[in-house]
Amino acid sequence: MSHKWAASPYLVWMALFIVVPIILVGYWSLTVKTDAGTQFTTENFRQFFNPVHLKVLFRSLELALIATAVCFVLGYPLAYILARNNLRHKNTLIMLLVVPMWMNFLLRTYAWLTILEKNGVLNTILRWLSLPEINILYTKTAVVLGMVYNFLPFMVLPIYSVLSKIDPSIVEAAEDLGADWVTVFRKIIFPLSLPGVFSGIAMVFMPSVTTFVISKLLGGGHYSLIGNLIEDQFRLVDDWGFGSAISLVMMALILVSMALMSKFAGEDRGLGLW
């Protein structure tokens, strides 16, 4: 049975709506429109090194790194707890971890506004308890909080998946040979869980770097990230060349790191989410 021709409408669609747009991004990033016509330029890429843009870049990396670290610190113990065999309702708990990811991330982020506002839920509770108020909305802390909240399950799930596949007899063997649980964890469980950890780090870090919604809503627009920089180039300052250059670099970074990840994690393990 061969119906290769049936793919042709898709091939046309793919060429027009996937391949051509990427070429256009490349074209925009490498050209500049002058009075003398369109000319080749590397100016758009050099703009990265403008201190203002470098600052945005470093801020994105900084916030994404912090969010990833927090997710790791919060997520690893949870994955470890979930992976224990004696846990009741294990499937339900895993399911409950996945459900919030089904919710529109815009709404999940928006939900935090209600909590963090000056007269929001958090401060109302704090006042009721006669504790000092916390005003972190529209700060970096709020942006990191939003990232952690949105992407935490993506740290927990791959680690959980790897941990639950560790052969218990290896752990038992170590214990029989006299290792205490710290040694078992340090020498066996943690090294074996590393592929899951790397998947988790990638899956939290990449969306954190590229987000523009979280920083806009919870940072109040004061903390531009790379995503906001792209948005601004197209929506605000009309510098499509520079916007395309950032998009291209971001795309290259992510596709390359995905390729590396899948090589590293091995075909069957994938990103461990499933």
Partner: peptide, 21 residues
Amino acid sequence: NITYIPVLNPDIVTGVSLMLL
């Protein structure tokens, strides 16, 4: 691999590239 591009790419890049098209 090309089919995976819209799946793997950040949405913002997909959005921007389509807008350019």
